[in-house]
Design a protein around this nucleic acid. Structure first.
Lengths: 191, 191
DNA sequence: AAAAAACAGTGATCTACATCACGTAACCAA
DNA sequence: TTGGTTACGTGATGTAGATCACTGTTTTTT
């Protein structure tokens, strides 16, 4: 966990410049946590207080329909942020879940602390505006791809973007991200 | 166009409080524009300089695939913002289009001016962070609905959220928003 | 008012993907 | 080692929605 601070600092520095003192203060609000493969971080119905910055490992944020089907919104890799943002910002019970695909180390930031930091430091508010911006644009692109492309194209798009995923996560999770049955995904290889 | 300023002011006030002087200064960066039904605001390939705040009428932002199929990302109604945000923020050529479903009045804000205002006024940066937040959460919800629900459910969801749409926009545009053929949407009524 | 364009409904057929069912291999934990 | 769970592949069949083709109606343009 030695390098968690450095990883966050480098991540922030890509968008805004903080003095070392400012960053130290910023970092002091994060709580490092370790999780084992399979552990749950947020469950449907929970009160959501934090968002999570991934240092190592891989999380997934997902929705379960009819207690049966799972749809994955995001695979969260190192330097990605994950939470149920709807629940977090609106202080409603979680409607999606977050858990660990692999062992994972994360930094946890509470909603209150984020808002406090945003109010205290204009630069930090700027950082979070840009972070959300990127998420918004990426989600919009994914929505378009969903409307526009068939499963095979979306699969190739995903692997082009995140080649590590192919070996890191089981195929049925990739299917759940693509919104397709695992059988159909399996058959895609042979065509 | 008398009330454009009041409409924007009320919209902003829901998220942040600016003094009248601050708001006057903020407003001075917006340029009022009027468009006729059918007019194009942003076309694929354009350099995108502005985002648009809708005062009256209805815009659509959409993507055209293979010069044939259209997918609508957003119907922009009064007090909504519209642009190709990917192109706007990353200064790349537009990949989506914006045009007018009805006659429309909008307020136009340039990318430069937004960033300048955000840098000058912490509160304004805060406003734009929250606006993007809401867009991000809404887009994520729509993505989930896309994965999870069939056309009929998505159609009912849309009409529940925006009852005006049914009479305001032609059915084939609603089909293009739902990502379904106009024939299928038409058949939905009878079932 | 006439012509043209856009909008809307419906039948027939096609297809991508879902679902069900089954078999096999890999990876655990006791 | 063994039994159990999870992952993966593949055939058979079902179905939501796409596509094509045609018709009628409403709106816009001249």
């Amino acid at each position: 966990m030695m390098e968690a601070k450095a990883i966050l600092q480098e991540h922030i520095a890509k968008t805004v410049s903080l003095t070392q003192d400012e960053f130290d203060y910023f970092y002091s609000h994060f709580k490092p946590l370790s999780f084992k493969k399979g552990q749950t971080i947020i469950s449907t119905g929970d009160k959501v207080n934090c968002e999570y910055f991934v240092i190592s490992g891989c999380l997934k944020t997902f929705f379960i329909n009819d207690e049966i089907k799972m749809y994955i919104l995001q695979f969260a890799m190192p330097t990605w942020w994950a939470s149920d943002y709807n629940a977090l910002y609106n202080q409603t019970p979680a409607s999606i879940n977050v858990d660990c695909i692999t062992d994972a180390e994360v930094l946890c930031l509470s909603n209150e602390d984020r808002e406090k930091l945003c109010a205290e430091f204009h630069q930090i508010e700027h950082f979070f505006r840009w972070r959300t911006n990127k998420g918004y644009i990426a989600t919009q692109k994914r929505l378009l791809s969903f409307m526009n492309n068939n499963v095979k194209t979306r699969y190739e798009e995903l692997l082009a973007l995140y080649p590590q995923l192919y070996n890191l996560v089981p195929k049925h999770l990739i299917a759940a991200y693509l919104g397709v049955s695992r059988e159909t995904l399996s058959r895609l290889h042979n065509s």
